[in-house]
Design a protein around this nucleic acid. Structure first.
Lengths: 239, 239
DNA sequence: CTTGCGCTCCCCATAAATGGCGATGGCAAG
DNA sequence: CTTGCCATCGCCATTTATGGGGAGCGCAAG
């Protein structure tokens, strides 16, 4: 089957590329190889700070950033709460901002059909791989049914490469915490006050403070809340 | 290719199954179909609260839970910080607890080779899909090279089904936070004091307090640190 | 058109966390 | 055998967070 060879070619190209430029080119091969109008990868971070590449017109991508559309885009919002790839049609387009966004998107050449694959990486990374197209529902269903597995794999490989080539975006490795520090931060993270933590761990509150301060220092955190947040993000504690 | 048909059969079975029992059976088909000794799925939550099914001997799985091995298991610890599937050999087995864990695992019939695929879902879900086997390095590399894509897809499909059939675990759907609440918690999570957050958001410190309290209430958190931790865990904020 | 919710503002008092100065003993690696 | 890290303890002053009251405006959905 042609598409199978297509997938292999793309995944191999993804494995082989060593530059972001190379990576960005491959997205166009996805369009050609799978007969869709557009494909894109979008790493969603805090508002306005995305990492995007794809085949959408540059005006649209700029507009998307300028208008902070990722906050209203049902594809982003909807995928954030699910694991399963999703057809755009099945998302909730009822809120007014969403409908206006859709109108704007169609005007800028985004396809009326789309299929989005949520991707999650370490440290809370969240990204999307999307293919979109202009066609009727039946034709689109044929495409997505046939290639949904391929899209999943490509999403995985794209993200893998992005993480590899954009290490700066990926949080730095923190020095490990001592067991007591982990205990202390974990209990604080579930809402215990310092007094309660000290009692739970059967240590003086002062000793506890030493742990917290030590953990704060290791994590480069300026207060306890920050330390908890960093420890959670870095996977050093789990609640 | 036989393995291709094998993959199709398994993914279709995964799509079709509607019970956890059915799901648990399929893991054995993975072993048969791909010629590996063991396969397993492990949803890692707080210590001792896992969701597991697989082909390991029941004694071992019980022991794993009893000894809280997920805290020292380099497969779990190592995968938590990466996106890429990983061969067990490439993990860090040098800490003493890890070495003792390995000895214990081998004694209980876990293979000397393994390949682990990290899986992440909404609300900070973290799971592992692992295949393991007893053989030499060369043979193992042939298996993993040939089937790594299949393993990724199976990991994805297993997790998809688990999320579908175990909604209770995922059910901790927190009510969504308002944009201002997200702003407030996010800034607190990066270490800002309330005064700084209020200034950054250009609101009074009292208004900020209302947001924090409202978020605390929605999250069932008893103090700010707890709220931050829960919001992070639930994926409601990202830092 | 009412009800709810989000966003905004203020004061007071108390509880909690932080910063700074200490100290001792154990254990492991260089 | 020193150096560093971990675990444990104390006190005081200051800053910050929390809990308890209030209130008004706007928007959207029932």
């Amino acid at each position: 089957m042609a598409a199978k060879a297509e997938l292999d070619r793309i995944l191999e190209a993804l494995d082989a590329t060593e530059t972001l430029d190379g990576l960005h080119q491959i997205i166009h091969k996805v369009c050609d190889g799978f007969g869709v109008d557009h494909a894109m990868y979008l790493w969603v971070e805090t508002a306005g700070n995305h990492y995007y590449f794809g085949s959408y017109p540059p005006e649209w991508t700029q507009r998307y950033i300028d208008k902070a559309y990722s906050r209203v885009d049902p594809v982003v919002v909807g995928c954030y709460q699910r694991f399963h790839p999703v057809d755009w049609k099945r998302l909730d387009w009822s809120p007014r901002p969403a409908r206006e966004f859709l109108k704007d998107a169609l005007k800028h050449g985004v396809g009326n059909q789309g299929y989005a694959i949520p991707i999650r990486g370490p440290n809370g990374q969240f990204a999307l791989f999307t293919v979109s197209h202009n066609c009727d529902d039946a034709a689109w269903e044929r495409i997505t049914e046939k290639h949904s597995r391929d899209f999943i794999l490509m999403a995985h490989y794209f993200n893998r490469k992005v993480l590899e080539l954009e290490p700066s975006r990926n949080a730095e490795q923190a020095q490990p915490l001592s067991p007591r520090e982990v205990d202390a931060l974990t209990l604080l993270a579930i809402g215990y006050s310092r007094a309660q933590v000290a009692e739970t761990l059967s240590i003086s509150e002062h000793t506890l403070r030493v742990y917290i301060e030590s953990a704060r220092f290791k994590l480069g955190a300026i207060n306890t809340t920050h330390a908890i947040a960093r420890a959670l993000s870095l996977g050093l504690i789990v609640i």
